[in-house]
Amino acid sequence: MQLSLEGRVFAVTGAAQGIGAAIVASLADAGATVAAIDIDEDGMASLAHRATTHAADLGSRDGARSAIADVEALHGRLDGLVTAAGGVRGQAGRPIEEISEADWRAIFAANVDAAMWCAQAAAPGMKARGWGRVVTISSGAGLRPSLTGIQAYASAKHALVGLTRQLALELGPHGVTVNSVAPGFILSNPSTERQWDAFGPERQKQIVQGIHMRRLGRAEDIANAVVFLASDRAEWITGQILPVDGGHA
């Protein structure tokens, strides 16, 4: 099955590294015109030959609207949006008594607010053209308790799953599908590598043994699923959460 995105314009948030960067590459390989969006402008330098790059802080409504407007102005339209921005923002698991308001809000801003405001900005154009794709990157932490032990991260990813399903209901009549890819444990950036190292050999072994495929995921595994959901082959799939986790025991 060949998947072609020729003639389509996609924006990818959180594009500077890891899963986001892999999604940019895979969409471009499928023929799409891609706009990479991230707060880390320098981190996107390696993507310049695959995508246009747009530095933005997506945690605010104004920042997200400005970034999407820049993409639409440059490329003439926006057919699809992949919200890969998020992560743990340098936090580690701690007892609930130690969590500050700032810590809680930082993770929600990155994982939920950014997806909401980018989708809000992108939706009018997609609705007007009667075709669109929104793919959020949630997590296994949005389906069950999080391996990170971070209360805000688990809560934010559960909220992102809810947002995905609600937007699917709202945008479906306009020809726009909204789905989510929920990765398992992916060694894709310095934060996940630090987390993996912190588990120690025994915990690492337990995690791998709990995966049917007996390996950790790769960023490309997630990107491949995104390309399918972005394609015409997935035109009657919406409101779904696709776990890409190698099988979770």
Rank of each mutant, 00 (worst) to 15 (best):
Q91F: 06
G93T: 01
A30N: 03
R89V: 05
V88L: 03
P190V: 02
L78G: 03
P201T: 08
V24L: 09
T177L: 00
K205C: 08
R77S: 12
A114K: 05
I99V: 15
F185Y: 08
K157H: 12
C118G: 07
A56E: 11
A32I: 01
I207C: 09
S180I: 02
R77C: 11
R144P: 08
V176P: 08
A11N: 04
M44G: 10
R203W: 06
S60Y: 04
A106W: 04
D221T: 00
S191E: 14
G87L: 03
A45H: 12
L216F: 02
S146F: 06
G200P: 07
I186R: 05
D221N: 09
P95W: 09
V34C: 11
E170W: 04
L169T: 11
V12I: 07
F199V: 10
T136M: 15
V134L: 14
E170I: 03
I237Q: 07
L143A: 15
V135L: 09
A219V: 01
K205P: 09
A115S: 15
C118T: 13
I96A: 15
R214T: 10
A36T: 12
P183D: 02
G76V: 02
T13V: 08
L216G: 04
D62C: 05
V88P: 00
G7L: 05
R144K: 15
G76M: 14
L81A: 01
T164D: 06
R144N: 09
A48D: 13
Q209W: 05
Q166R: 14
A219E: 02
L58R: 01
R129T: 14
G175P: 09
I241R: 07
L143W: 13
V226M: 00
V208Q: 04
A234C: 06
A168D: 06
T148M: 12
G247S: 00
Y153K: 11
G14T: 07
R214L: 11
A109F: 03
G175H: 08
E101T: 13
W104F: 15
V135Y: 04
F199D: 06
L167D: 07
M116T: 03
G130Y: 11
G239T: 00
A119H: 01
P95F: 06
V244G: 07
A30V: 05
I241K: 08
G239C: 00
V135G: 06
T192D: 03
N111K: 09
R194D: 14
L171D: 01
T83Y: 00
H158W: 12
G172R: 13
A25V: 07
D62W: 02
W131L: 12
I241A: 04
T238W: 03
V34G: 05
R105K: 12
A152L: 14
A32F: 03
L81E: 00
